Structures are given as C-alpha cells and as structure tokens.
Computed example of a mutant assay.
Amino acid sequence: MKTFRCSQCDQPVYFENTACAACGVALGYLPSEAAMAAFEAAPEGPWKALGKRVTGKWKPCANYAGPQVCNWMVPADDPAALCSCCRQTEVIPTLEKPDNRLYWARLEAAKRRLYYALDTLGLDRPGLAEDPERGLRFQFLEAVEGGDPVLTGHDSGCITVNIAEADDAEREARRTAMGEPYRSLLGHFRHEIGHYYWDALVAQGGWLEPYRALFGDERADYAKALETHYRDGPRPDWPAHFISAYAASHPWEDWAETWAHYLHVVDALDTADHWGLHLDGSAEGPAAADPGESFSKPFRERLTFAWLPLSRFLNSMSRSLGHGDVYPFVLPDPVLDKLTFVDEVVRSAHCVAWRDWPSDPRE
C-alpha cells in the first residue's frame, strides 16, 4: 500500500480515511489514479475537487454518500451509482441488525484493500457485465438458525463470505477451534480470489503442466481430499512442503493458500518500500538502504533479500508490544518455488512486474 497525502494541505492520510485530520476536508479515493483526493462535499451533483493534483470530475460512491461504508469516488459522467468495488457486491446482510452494518463495512474495507492490490498488479477483475458467466461478484451472507450453513468459498467467480468472519471474537474462536496460526478477513478475500485466478490464469492461461509439477494434479477428487484432511489431519511432513496445513489438503487449496501469501508479501513489501523501510538480509543485520533497491531483484531473491528480514522484524516488533507473531509462517524451498511460480503467472498476465517498477517506488 502506497502512502497518501491530502491534495489540499499535503498532510499524510490513509487509505480508509474519509476526512483529513489536519484540514478537515472530505477525502475520497480515486481508483483510476490510485490517489486520495480532497473534496468539498456537495449534497447533490459532483463534489468540488480541492488541490492541484486532482483531475476530472467526481461523485461519491452511493455507499459513501448513503450508508457510509465506502470512501471511493466515481467519475461524474459514469451512470453507475456505485464505485467499481461496491458494484460487484451482489448480496449484503440485512441491516436491521445494528452489528450487520459494522460487519458489512469491514467486509467492504477488506475488499477495497484486495482490489487495490489487484489494480497495482494490473490484474483484471471483470464483473458480470464484462463476463456474464464467470464475472466476479460477492455475496456476504449470514447464517440463520435452522437454515443451511454459510460457507466461505468460491464458485465460478462468485465469492461467498460468512459475515461472522467480520466479527473479531467469532473469527478468533474459529481460528482457535481449527488450530490455525493465522486467520484474517483480508486473508479470506485473498484466498478465495486465488481460486478465481487459478481458473482465469492457470487453467485458461497455459500454465497447467508447470502448475501440476509444483502443486500436484488438481484432478484428484476434491471432496474426498477435504474429507480426508478434516478426518485425519494434514500429512505429517506438510511443514517441509506447504505454506499451511490446509494447503496440503488438495492442489487447489495449495494454490489458493500460496496465492494469498503472495498478496500478503507484495502488499507488505509495497508498504515498507513506500515508507522508506528496508531491512538488509545480510549477516550484519538490519540496516537502512535505498527503499527501491530490492525492486531490481527477481522475485525469489526479493523474498529472501527483503521479505524474510521484514517478516522477522514485524514479528519481533509485535512481540515487543505484547502480541503474537503477525506472520507465523515458515517458507521452505518448495514454498519459495511456489511463490515464485505465482509471480511468474501474474507477470504473464500483462501486468506490472516487480522488477519493471521504477527504481523509486514513490514516483
């Protein structure tokens, strides 16, 4: 995530902000420009842009102006009322329950962060208008007493998320019950959209054979594999080959888990680089360096040169503040190979390659 500044007063602002804490103006995110901008809010019609850096005319997403669960802007001449992120949500929970509005806001906030990363990587995210059969859409569902269980998952472009995952206490209880070291709302989005991009980039992109060489044959019975996983647990040697125990259940889940971690890594490194933070992975220990230096390196080398030192630092800092590890994972060589493969697939999709970014990522 890049750093942002208010276009009126130039003070630092953040991706989720709706107002500048320094000058008090309304803020909105411009997805086409990957920028936060200051506006003079208007009850009707386009909002007046403030500052020289804002171009074009904009209106707030209907979920910004109404229920206030979004802070993205829409071009003023776009007939759509919702932004490019909110318009792909098909189903929201009933808002008669006060907590559901909070859960919906958290779900949309996580989805916006996901979309920021996809846009940064140059990955298409077509909706049903562009792809009527497999376009991306989201359903945020609530389990009701006596009804069918709501399972978070993906099916032909439709990503379903149980809104209970937006309840911090409930999510932590599920993490503990399932023996997982890590469980987050954003992680769910990253994992499920990994299944979507497996269909779009691997199955349809000519990568099946190299994928099978690394991850295994996805034609293995999926239902039976999951049944075995939940009944018997993961294979004993999973830490030497997989990013997580769940990744060992089936090649599809191995891909989705690895994809999610790829997005974890690239987003965290992007954030560190834009903050000017670089940790030297040499034996001499942490050292300040040019934050753009690692952008010139191949992705596998970037993992070892930049990500491993950064993740160790983040874990140490979290422990210093009295918390557990924020990245409680180990990356053995087979996982590094899989992460590198994901990067190759992403770059093949005519997107921005890490090594092709400018030497100064803040440009």
Rank of each mutant, 00 (worst) to 15 (best):
residue 189 F to W: 15
residue 191 H to Y: 07
residue 90 E to F: 12
residue 208 L to F: 02
residue 227 E to N: 08
residue 76 A to C: 01
residue 82 L to W: 04
residue 36 M to N: 00
residue 355 R to F: 03
residue 236 P to R: 09
residue 320 S to A: 15
residue 80 A to F: 04
residue 92 I to R: 11
residue 132 P to F: 01
residue 319 R to V: 12
residue 240 A to D: 14
residue 173 A to L: 11
residue 204 Q to C: 03
residue 182 Y to H: 13
residue 277 L to K: 00
residue 25 V to H: 14
residue 82 L to K: 13
residue 195 H to P: 15
residue 153 G to H: 13
residue 6 C to N: 07
residue 344 E to M: 07
residue 278 H to P: 00
residue 301 E to I: 04
residue 208 L to I: 14
residue 74 V to D: 10
residue 113 R to W: 04
residue 15 F to H: 06
residue 337 D to Y: 05
residue 259 W to A: 13
residue 82 L to A: 15
residue 78 D to C: 04
residue 278 H to N: 09
residue 213 A to G: 14
residue 143 A to F: 13
residue 152 T to C: 09
residue 24 G to S: 09
residue 275 W to P: 00
residue 22 A to Q: 13
residue 19 A to P: 00
residue 108 E to R: 14
residue 218 E to C: 00
residue 271 T to C: 07
residue 280 D to W: 06
residue 275 W to Q: 15
residue 300 R to V: 12
residue 224 K to G: 03
residue 270 D to Q: 10
residue 126 P to W: 12
residue 129 A to Q: 12
residue 244 S to D: 11
residue 161 V to F: 14
residue 281 G to N: 01
residue 204 Q to D: 10
residue 238 W to K: 05
residue 351 C to P: 08
residue 195 H to R: 10
residue 170 E to Y: 02
residue 359 S to N: 07
residue 253 E to G: 04
residue 201 L to G: 05
residue 351 C to K: 05
residue 19 A to W: 11
residue 53 R to I: 05
residue 220 A to D: 06
residue 275 W to I: 11
residue 174 R to D: 13
residue 52 K to H: 04
residue 145 E to H: 09
residue 55 T to E: 13
residue 79 P to Y: 00
residue 50 L to N: 02
residue 247 A to T: 07
residue 156 S to L: 14
residue 222 Y to P: 00
residue 34 A to T: 09
residue 214 L to Y: 07
residue 164 A to Y: 10
residue 233 G to I: 08
residue 42 A to T: 12
residue 313 F to R: 11
residue 43 P to V: 03
residue 293 E to L: 14
